[in-house]
Amino acid sequence: MIQLENVTKTYPKASRPSLDQVSCGIEKGEFVFFIGPSGSGKSTIIKLLLHEVTPNQGKVVVNGRDVTSMRSWKIPHFRRSIGCVFQDFRLLPNRTAYENVAFALEVIGKTKAVARRVVPEVLELVGLGGKEHRYPHELSGGEQQRVAVARAFVNRPLILLADEPTGNLDPDTSIEIMRLLDRINRTGTTVVMVTHDSNIVNQMRRRVVEIESGRIVRDQARGVYG
């Protein structure tokens, strides 16, 4: 599903590479944590998978497609097969929960009718039934992240990327979000999550890839934060 082959990424003006000769394979339906201290290069992986940045060396293959050599006009279509959630939720403040999710559908050409059918369903799935018409500022942090998850998942992507999704949430709420991601993973969606939340990693007991200074130092099938 996802293949990194000897990927090196050095940002302009950086003294050392963020990722240094990283190779890693992720199967369909897996749930993988990328862990490591700040600045270790784990977020760069998400950016590479989204083709927000391109590697200096090596190959990134997602869904059987070589992202590195992808033409720029194909990127938008490619991204529709990937859902993404972030630490800062990235919701539109002037739109309700429903509108935020529907917006993601409408801008890729889905009709309002489709949105009316699909959006309430996915909001129900993330546990926001009855709160569709609240604005982000009327929702708690956990609820906002649920909206973000709903938006990422509404298109039924093959892959869900999560960049520190619990970074702004308290431990209990974090656990709830993790349960949600776990449920999404059980539908067959590959989940890649970048985090430094040891609590969560230890509870979930999923595959853990640890990165330090741009290199993979550990890759464990049912790992803990360690």
Binding site: I75, P76, R80, R90, F103, I108, N155
Partner: peptide, 16 residues
Amino acid sequence: REVAVMKLVGASNWFI
């Protein structure tokens, strides 16, 4: 913000 979300969910460039 809208543009960031549109890019994220894969809206085509012309549409943005």
